[in-house]
Simulated assay, not measured.
Amino acid sequence: MGKLSRELGSGLNSSQFANLYSFQAAARHLSFARAAQELCLTPSAVSHRIARLEQGLGFRLFQRLPRQLRLTEEGERIFLILQGALDELREALQPTPGSEIGGRLAIHAPPSLAACWLVPRLAGFTVRHPALTLDLRVGNGGVDFRTQSIDLALYYGQGEFPGLVAERWMDERIAPVCSRRYAQQHGLLQRAEQLRQCTLLHDTLAWDNAAFDAEWAYWARQRGVELPDHHLSFDRSDLCVLAAASHAGVAIGRYRLVRERLASGELLLPFGEAWLPAPSAYYLVHPARDSLPGRVQAFIDWLRECAA
């Protein structure tokens, strides 16, 4: 809590702690009404608490716009420091010094990564840290760390995460995959030109702002292959792969997500080991903090080991 005290100086005293907590809720929601609902207060009470906090500090925390709240530069700085201080406090409230890392750990991941890579490995993490309660949330959209109670997000993307700390954690490579039956029916084995007669399976949300056919277009440019117009579209890579395994067409397989299906023979690489470095990679993303809570650092360390 030392950095928070230094930032707030004499403006922080015992009478201001309730106001500070109200500010934290309002900053997360960017709404006095939603903060009031969380705190079981009226919006007017929340507004008055924050006004008293601003008066004590001597600067504005919010820009009050018509039907909108926006943090000032000072408010954003104080909010981030306060979030870090609360994490430190949660760590300090562990039962005893040197005890097992415990508590709730909330992780966000894309559905395909969660289903095909992360969940099958989670038993190893729970054995290592039995006192941790893991809460895994999946979704294609980005996380708003201010309003969502998420500790760490795993993203597949191109490394653009403004205002957040991002670590490139795991690389990827891609290649077409299909079932053996589909490859034989369409004469695909070692004959990429036969793709013109096939159905392509597209992950339309491969990464943020990607075109619906981004992965196939990238692979085709690199290989000089003409692609057909006939396709089926999904919003998840694992659904593309499932459709391919069910003889519906040819999908772009991400090695990290399809290698078990390749090893079992459920899928094959019709054009041999035609892997290309993917245009995206996997990132670990979280808000900036002086130091990460122990539970988050433990999960990151485990993820690095798995990736290696």
Results as ranks from 00 to 15, higher is better:
11 G>I: 12
12 L>M: 04
13 N>F: 00
14 S>C: 08
14 S>G: 08
14 S>P: 03
15 S>I: 09
15 S>F: 06
16 Q>M: 15
18 A>G: 12
20 L>P: 05
22 S>P: 02
22 S>Q: 00
23 F>C: 01
23 F>V: 03
24 Q>L: 13
24 Q>D: 15
25 A>Y: 08
26 A>R: 06
27 A>S: 01
29 H>C: 04
30 L>C: 06
30 L>I: 07
30 L>V: 10
31 S>T: 09
31 S>V: 01
32 F>E: 08
33 A>F: 11
33 A>D: 00
34 R>I: 10
35 A>L: 00
36 A>I: 01
36 A>V: 03
36 A>P: 01
38 E>R: 05
38 E>C: 11
39 L>K: 13
39 L>C: 07
39 L>A: 10
40 C>Q: 08
40 C>K: 13
41 L>C: 10
41 L>Q: 11
44 S>C: 13
46 V>E: 05
47 S>R: 09
47 S>N: 06
48 H>M: 15
48 H>W: 12
50 I>P: 09
50 I>M: 07
51 A>W: 02
53 L>T: 00
53 L>M: 10
56 G>T: 08
56 G>D: 12
56 G>K: 00
57 L>V: 02
59 F>M: 11
60 R>Q: 13
61 L>A: 06
61 L>E: 09
62 F>L: 06
63 Q>K: 11
63 Q>C: 10
64 R>A: 02
65 L>G: 03
66 P>Q: 03
68 Q>E: 12
68 Q>K: 12
68 Q>H: 15
69 L>K: 01
69 L>D: 05
70 R>Q: 09
70 R>D: 08
73 E>K: 13
73 E>Q: 04
77 R>H: 15
78 I>D: 07
79 F>Y: 06
80 L>M: 12
82 L>H: 07
83 Q>I: 14
84 G>H: 07
86 L>Y: 15
88 E>K: 15
88 E>R: 14
88 E>A: 15
89 L>T: 13
90 R>A: 15
90 R>D: 15
91 E>Y: 09
92 A>K: 09
92 A>R: 01
94 Q>K: 09
95 P>V: 03
96 T>H: 12
97 P>N: 01
97 P>D: 07
99 S>F: 11
100 E>K: 13
101 I>F: 05
101 I>P: 04
101 I>H: 08
103 G>H: 09
106 A>Y: 09
108 H>N: 01
109 A>G: 10
111 P>I: 05
112 S>I: 07
115 A>S: 14
119 V>C: 14
119 V>H: 14
121 R>L: 10
122 L>N: 08
123 A>S: 13
125 F>Y: 07
126 T>M: 05
127 V>S: 08
127 V>H: 08
129 H>W: 10
129 H>V: 03
129 H>Y: 12
130 P>C: 09
132 L>N: 11
133 T>S: 07
134 L>F: 12
136 L>S: 02
136 L>H: 04
